[in-house]
Design a protein around this nucleic acid. Structure first.
Lengths: 190, 190
DNA sequence: GTCTATAGCGGGATAGAC
DNA sequence: GTCTATCCCGCTATAGAC
């Protein structure tokens, strides 16, 4: 199950096009042309345009989730853990703003099973944040919080980066991620 | 310049359709049908589909901006002021999640002058937040912050509500807005 | 100001050669 | 696996009657 060059080019082209123009604003001809392939080439590896979006969206969700899971599991110290989670989650959205925009903005375009599969993955992001916040509460490192609301707020700080970061040239991604860590710590401190 | 019933119905229908399906995913036939009009009726009050999006987007931006300006001007006390700004800005996005989603997600679909006009309005949101944060810094009510980054973070807390709130039935809008005020105060406190 | 009817074209997807 | 050529549907927008 290796990914061929042609497959990868099509996926990359789709990410670029969907991020710039949205799913419905993108033609399969445009994707093919960005990948330097014929219009028919899109259908060699994907059943339909929607199927291609699913491939992009699923990979994006899995990648972002892997980053968050890895940060979650990297230490037992609640403060260190939450800092790493916010930092890595934010940085992923900064460094992968195009995929991130497709992941966040094009959910509606997914049909039936595809949408369900992705929504199921999305629950996991909140769960991880809530767990991280609870462990800090218990240890006394964090204040008593509405962990659901606080978890969503911390995710929002990361997710909403895809809205503006790409259009703000010259801004340093690491610095933005560190700022989010700072804000997160301020939110949870007792 | 009164808005006729037919005009309002078309605008409402457009908001609903664009929010659910996105601009490019919506047909003018769908908008007409939701407004219980013929497909041609869309073109009586608007030159094109894009022109209709512009009408929706411009009104939405103006409304949200009016809410933020009003909160900004409602008091001189920095803490009270920032609380009102975050509360009202969050509440507007919660109570107008459909318009809010069009405003936030469909910017790309606006062409030329239309996009520029809206982007100009958007700068004002950040400016207001930065001003509010600066005055709190000066008075000693707030910590020394990167006011640009903090302003964007506070806006993110409000804006990202349109992504998930509508799909979370039974959740109380005022409570969510109050939670955002709480997080904002935690971020800025010395 | 609203309708019915339709022009005209762009886009998703496929056929069939190589 | 990739191409060229094309089907055919559905969409934006308009014409013209009322």
């Amino acid at each position: 199950m290796t990914t061929t060059v042609a497959q990868q080019r099509l996926l990359d082209a789709a990410v670029e096009a969907f991020a710039e123009q949205g799913y419905h604003g993108t033609t399969t001809r445009d994707i093919a042309s960005r990948a330097q392939r014929s219009p028919a080439a899109v259908y060699i590896h994907h059943e339909s345009k929607e199927d291609l979006l699913f491939a992009v969206s699923l990979r994006g969700h899995q990648e972002a989730l892997a980053v968050l899971e890895s940060a979650f599991g990297s230490t037992d110290d609640p403060t260190e853990r939450l800092q790493r989670m916010v930092y890595e989650f934010s940085l992923w959205h900064l460094r992968n703003a195009q995929v991130g925009r497709v992941v966040q903005y094009e959910l509606r375009a997914l049909r039936g099973d595809h949408r369900e599969a992705v929504i199921n993955l999305r629950h996991r992001f909140e769960e991880l944040m809530v767990q991280a916040l609870r462990s800090g509460e218990r240890s006394g490192a964090f204040a008593q919080l509405d962990v659901g609301a606080a978890g969503r707020a911390l995710l929002s700080l990361g997710i909403d980066l895809v809205r503006w970061f790409e259009a703000a040239p010259g801004r340093d991604a690491e610095a933005v991620a560190r700022a989010n860590v700072d804000f997160a710590m301020r939110i949870v401190r007792p």
